[in-house]
């Protein structure tokens, strides 16, 4: 079976991470190792096993549709690096190619 590859540069771009060349090489090696481990897991026979995201068989954890108190806007904005007129102020982000 062909060894799958992770394109570290591509994943870093998706995660908005800037990597130094040596970091890129380091992570490439580490991720390749992790992937080869998954290759081993893939050999386990799992036909008829339902995929799961959780180790515990717990379902339907709900809350009722009833309001509970949160933050006042003053408190919420205390953590804002910058605020004005009750709004969090951030640099304008425009996607460019």
């Amino acid at each position: 079976m062909e060894q799958p590859q992770i394109n570290v540069e591509y994943v870093a771009r998706l995660a908005r991470l800037e990597l130094e060349p040596e970091e890129r090489d380091l992570f490439q090696g580490q991720l390749d190792q992790i992937l080869s481990y998954f290759e081993r897991i893939r050999q386990v026979a799992v036909e008829g096993v339902e995929p799961t995201a959780h180790t515990r068989p717990v379902y339907n954890v709900f809350r009722e549709d009833e309001p509970t108190p949160g933050f006042s806007s003053e408190v919420a904005l205390k953590n804002a690096p910058s605020s004005a007129d009750g709004l969090f102020i951030v640099p304008r982000i425009v996607e460019t190619s």
Binding site: L87, V90, P91, R92, I93
Partner: peptide, 8 residues
Amino acid sequence: GRRSGVDF
């Protein structure tokens, strides 16, 4: 302008 205001 060059900034954005965010309301959650």
